[in-house]
Simulated scan of single mutants.
Amino acid sequence: MEEAPAVKLTCRELGVLRLLARGLSNRLIARRLEISEKTVKNHLSGIYPKIGAADRTQAALYAQRVGLTEPYEATPSAVATRAAPPTDPALTARERGVLRLLARGLSNRLIARRLEISEKTVKNHLSGIYPKIGAADRTQAALYAQRVGLAA
Rank of each mutant, 00 (worst) to 15 (best):
I35A: 08
A141H: 04
L61C: 03
G15E: 12
A136D: 08
I29Q: 00
L14M: 15
R94H: 09
V66K: 00
R22I: 05
S36Y: 07
A136M: 08
P89Y: 06
R31V: 10
G149D: 09
P71T: 02
A93Q: 13
A151F: 04
H43W: 04
K120E: 12
S107D: 09
L110S: 06
R82P: 04
V7R: 11
A152S: 14
Y130F: 15
A74N: 09
A60W: 00
A63C: 06
T121C: 06
R96Y: 04
I129T: 03
K8S: 05
L91V: 04
A135L: 07
T57A: 10
G128T: 09
V7C: 03
R109A: 12
R18V: 11
V16Y: 01
A60G: 14
G52K: 12
L101M: 06
Q58L: 04
V79Q: 13
H125G: 02
P131C: 07
R65W: 03
L19Q: 06
A54E: 10
L17V: 03
A93R: 13
Q140K: 11
R32T: 15
V98F: 02
A83E: 12
Y72T: 00
K41V: 12
I35P: 05
I35L: 13
T121H: 08
E95M: 05
L91F: 09
S77D: 14
A6D: 11
V16S: 02
M1A: 10
Y144P: 05
L106K: 14
K120I: 15
R82H: 13
L143N: 03
K50I: 02
L143G: 02
L17G: 00
T139Y: 02
L19D: 01
Q58D: 04
E3H: 06
L33W: 05
P86T: 15
E73P: 02
T92W: 04
T39P: 00
L24M: 13
R56E: 08
R65I: 01
L9H: 07
T121L: 10
L20P: 01
I111N: 01
V148Q: 02
Y72W: 13
L14R: 11
I51G: 01
R94L: 14
R82K: 14
R18K: 15
E34Y: 14
G52Q: 07
L61R: 01
R138W: 05
L99G: 04
R12V: 12
Q146C: 02
K120A: 14
I35Y: 11
L102E: 08
K41C: 08
K50T: 04
G128W: 10
E2W: 06
R109T: 14
L20Y: 05
A54N: 10
R22Q: 13
L20W: 04
L68F: 01
I35F: 10
T121F: 07
A152K: 15
A90K: 15
A74W: 09
A59G: 13
S118L: 09
G97C: 05
T92P: 06
A142K: 04
P89T: 06
L150R: 02
E2S: 10
S25Y: 07
L143S: 03
K41T: 15
S107L: 13
Q146N: 11
A54Y: 07
R138M: 13
L150F: 13
K132A: 09
L44H: 07
P76M: 12
E70D: 08
V98Q: 03
A59K: 01
N124M: 11
S45V: 01
Q140F: 11
P5W: 00
L33M: 14
